[in-house]
Amino acid sequence: MAEIQPAGSNRVGDRLRRAIESDIWFSFTRSPVTMLSAAVTAIAFLAALFAPWIAPHDPFDLASIDLLDASLPPAWMTDGDPRFLLGTDDQGRDVFSTIMFGARISLVVGFASVLFSLVLGVGLGLVSGYAGGRLDAFIMRVADVQLSFPAILIALLIDGVARSVLPRDHHDELAFYVLVFAIGVSGWVQYARTVRGSTLVEKNKEYVQAARVIGIRRSTILLRHILPNVTGPVLVIATIHLAVAIITEATLSFLGVGVPPTTPSLGTLIRVGNDFLFSGDWWITIFPGLALVVLVLAVNLLGDWLRDALNPKLR
């Protein structure tokens, strides 16, 4: 019995070893596409996070903007200016920098909405699945009704209603919160349904019954026993939902009901640039669009891989 050791020691090391030996890590290292998309996602996150410090220009500093630089094409084209890699917009702002700042807004809105949906959905799903009965029936009916309408429409409606209820002067300040709320509310159903489904399965498993026989209280069973066992699918949904939330935000901003033009997200940039498409200044709208697609695609690829990795029978 040489390996007897005080229980509880070396937990971190243990976890790390388990992680590296796990099949998930193995499948990660075996998939170049996944590693590439992880890298792209990481770069996008870092670029967005540190935009104020690493962006070549500050598009919101009016002093540094010169209207004479307006509508310059990308640097490699004939009229390009090496200072502006991807060209400038109609007001002389560096497109590359606005993309970095725009991605920052897109990601913040995306993460905040996912977090909102996740907390709401997982909470309701757990309660619904464990309590059952009328409460469950009610929550699931609401979910059914909401699910029969596309998320984008729900978000649009919430956004529209919020706009008509809130005072007009505060629209721009509140736009961010309204947007997060709208996208967040439109996305909770998926989490709730999945978590409810898993909870129904888990609560009938014998380890939960064993806990009940011991006398453990409901709330403790939910949080300590059931919650950790339903997180796998939630992680997958959250990843894919992040991509959807970023697209939804971009779409709403594109439709003019998202974040205000003073703090443009990628969607706003595309909307603004769209007006110059016909005059030939394609770079103002295409590059932000490209950035959006690459970001969303990378996140989607990660989500896809994660789903397969957590569900080995699919391979």
Partner: peptide, 8 residues
């Protein structure tokens, strides 16, 4: 297989 919590 189901009577022990796999996460504990």
């Amino acid at each position: 297989f189901s009577s022990l919590n796999p996460r504990m």
